[in-house]
Design a protein around this nucleic acid. Sequence first.
DNA 1: CTCCAGGTTCTGC
DNA 2: GCAGAACATGGA
Length: 265
Amino acid sequence: MQTKIQVSDFNLDNTLFSGQFFYIQSEPDGWHRLITDTESIRVKQEGNTIEIDGNPELAKELLNISQDFAPIKAHLEKDSLTSEAHKKYPGIRIMKQSPWQCLIGFVCSSASNIPKIKKNILLLSKNFGQQNGDHFLFPKVGKINNLATIESCATGFRSNYIYQINSIITESWLNSLYNLDYEEAKKELMILPGVGEKIADCVLLFAYGKQEAFPVDIWIKRVIEEQYLKSAANNKKIKEFGQTKFAPYAGYSQQYLYQWRRLQK
DNA sequence: CTCCAGGTTCTGC
DNA sequence: GCAGAACATGGA
């Protein structure tokens, strides 16, 4: 099934390559296959049109296409650096992933890098996911259940975290967190082994839609120290600064600053 | 070979 | 409470 959706202030490539979602297979003709634990779709942007090959509801949800971007644009333009980042990398949207896939992706992310996280997710899917045509879906909750096989997915010291999380949590527990506010949901997520503040914030932002979350990684630490504080600071300080300065869209500001600093020469 | 990557946990004060 | 080390792995 093919569908076309008109968009504005939306850039597919900038969104897909901003380190939010790790199971993407890009084709040379501009199509990108986005793979979840239930289905996969192909998407492509031509001007202000998003072409969708597959379930259009999944595309709209995952890419957060229908979110009104006007208030976010106004917010980004209030600060000179987020404004510059928005000009340079326009149309980055905060995606709305399934909590499960987002959680495992970011558990893989600790002290790693984006190409390697993508490799981890691909290997986990090949080993534990269901085959779907020429690719494998992301594994469902409970399926990533063999430690030795997880270790073969190049996940290193994160292997045991993945193994334990897979056995501890259920789909309904993950869904129950939608009903909690930011602080409460964060406390719950941080019970999981291998999930600290930063990974919890990523899951809250990229899956649960908590726009006040301000994940602090090495790039955000750098950009805040270099461009705002003009001095060294610990992660707690960085996070407090970001959440206060960029409220109520700290998550969006974070994402644009992250991209700006990470891709800086 | 060394350094680094969308960090977290453990240890020792 | 805090800083510092340990934790695997692959790419530059």
